[in-house]
């Protein structure tokens, strides 16, 4: 029983509101808002309202992963972790060059992301739960990522973290020739 899934992302997309009135004098109750036969008033809030009075919750729950599927997911994760750990020995196997190091780092981050998504998606049931949970968690993760990346870059972490230190020579000044008359 799918509810009218009018998704209004409750974190900011405020375009479609129930009593969005154009003309100055149009009164409050806009024609849009009628109560659908299914008993649940057609709501345009964060789409999270489908559970409202829908009888028992999350119809999707019956067919959560079976134990067998969890085992396969576990083996995949184990395999990925072994692969990750192996990158420690790559410099010995493929030569200790920068290229190997960059490839190893990108592989590591990729595997990390995959494991992250797998555990969150399957073990933590994010794939099967209502979308609002997914939105809350992903919002938190991306939020943390964005803020700390900005903070690190403004602490010139990426350029060279060789911060001009006590007895380092001070960085040379970008000297542009100021025209004599200036």
């Amino acid at each position: 029983m799918s509810s009218t899934d009018t998704q209004t992302d409750d974190s900011g997309h405020f375009g479609q509101s129930v009593d969005d009135t154009g003309g100055a004098l149009q009164d409050a109750v806009s024609p849009v808002d009628e109560t659908t036969a299914a008993g649940a008033p057609k709501t345009s809030d964060g789409g999270a309202d489908d559970g409202r009075g829908m009888g028992h919750l999350d119809p999707a729950h019956e067919h959560g992963p079976t134990d067998g599927q969890y085992f396969t997911v576990f083996w995949i994760l184990l395999g990925l972790t072994v692969l990750e750990v192996s990158t420690y020995w790559w410099p010995d196997w493929f030569g200790d060059t920068d290229a190997v190091r960059y490839v190893a780092t990108t592989v590591l981050f990729a595997l990390m992301f995959i494991k992250f998504v797998m555990i969150a998606g399957i073990f933590m049931h994010l794939k099967f739960d209502p979308k609002i949970l997914r939105r809350v968690f992903i919002f938190g993760v991306l939020f943390a990522l964005a803020i700390y990346l900005i903070a690190l870059s403004s602490m010139n972490f990426w350029t060279d973290s060789g911060i001009p230190w006590f007895n380092d020579p001070p960085p040379e000044i970008v000297t542009t020739t100021v025209p004599e008359g200036g």
Binding site: T8, D10, V18, P41, T43, S44, D45, G46, G53
Partner: peptide
Amino acid sequence: VLNLRTPGMTLMR
């Protein structure tokens, strides 16, 4: 706020 809204009280109400 997310869970205990009275019936009909959508986020935009």
